[in-house]
Simulated scan of single mutants.
Amino acid sequence: MRRIALFLGTNLAVLMVLGVVMNLLQPWLVRQGIDVNMAATLIIALVFGMGGAFISLLMSKRMALMSTRAKVIDSPANETERWLVATVEKQAREAGIGMPDVAIYDAPEPNAFATGASRNNALVAVSTGLLRSMRPNEVEAVLAHEVSHVANGDMITMTLLQGVLNTFVLLLSRILGQLIDRVVFKSDRGHGPGYWISVIVLQLVLGVLASLIVMAFSRWREFRADAGGARLAGRQNMMAALQRLKSAHGPAQLPESVEAFGIRGRVGGGLRRLLMSHPPLDERIEALARGQG
Rank of each mutant, 00 (worst) to 15 (best):
L42H: 09
G51A: 05
T80D: 07
M1P: 03
L212N: 02
F168T: 15
G9D: 04
V142I: 14
A107K: 10
A92N: 12
R219V: 04
L6T: 14
H149Q: 11
F7N: 10
V139W: 01
A240C: 04
P108V: 13
V88I: 12
I263S: 03
A40Y: 07
I55H: 04
G293S: 14
M276C: 14
L170V: 10
R224G: 06
L143D: 00
G9V: 12
G52T: 14
N121K: 10
V267K: 13
S75P: 00
S133F: 12
E79L: 00
V183E: 07
A77D: 06
F168E: 00
I73D: 03
V47C: 13
N152A: 11
F48M: 13
G163N: 00
V150Y: 00
M1Y: 06
S75R: 15
G129C: 08
A95L: 00
L58G: 04
F113N: 12
L176P: 07
S60P: 00
L171P: 01
E81S: 05
A45K: 09
V184E: 02
A5M: 15
G269F: 03
E283A: 05
L46Q: 10
T87Y: 02
L254D: 02
Q91S: 14
M99A: 11
V17Q: 12
M158S: 11
Q253D: 07
A95G: 10
V169R: 07
P110C: 04
L288I: 03
M134D: 00
V17M: 15
T159S: 08
E283V: 12
I34R: 10
E222I: 14
R266N: 15
L274M: 01
L29H: 13
R272L: 01
R266W: 09
L8V: 12
L42R: 08
L242V: 10
L202W: 04
G229C: 01
L254H: 01
P110Q: 02
L172R: 11
